[in-house]
């Protein structure tokens, strides 16, 4: 299986993730796009691991997965906390950092 194929797929997934982060206002959907981006990176890792016949790539995916899980937990807790204060989850309403 030519590597360029997998690289291309991975890049497309990543670009879709970027689009999701930039264009959606629902923070949950933004998070999900983030997961999409993680996945694209994982795909690339595994593909290269298979190409070079080295197992370390897959191990890295392992770590990425656990870290992503931790991040999702904290992030969702954050969203819930903000919702309790603001009563809305529209990202554009969270503009107190305006300078």
């Amino acid at each position: 299986m030519p590597m360029s194929y997998f690289i291309g797929l991975s890049v497309v997934m990543f670009a879709m993730g970027i689009l999701g982060v930039l264009l959606r206002r629902n923070p949950l959907v933004v998070f999900m796009s983030l997961e999409l981006m993680f996945n694209s990176a994982n795909l690339l890792f595994v593909a290269f691991s298979a190409y070079h016949q080295v197992l370390d790539g897959q191990l890295f995916v392992f770590f990425v997965m656990t870290t992503a899980a931790a991040e999702v937990a904290v992030g969702l807790a954050l969203i819930v906390a903000v919702f309790k204060a603001k009563r809305t989850i529209d990202l554009d309403q969270m503009s107190s950092l305006k300078g």
Partner: peptide, 22 residues
């Protein structure tokens, strides 16, 4: 791509727990 363990981990962790959380 020859990574069955990772595939299963993907299904269990990602699709199984993270998405459920979402």
């Amino acid at each position: 791509l020859g990574a069955p363990f990772i595939a299963l981990a993907q299904v269990t962790v990602y699709a199984g727990s993270i998405m459920v959380l979402f």
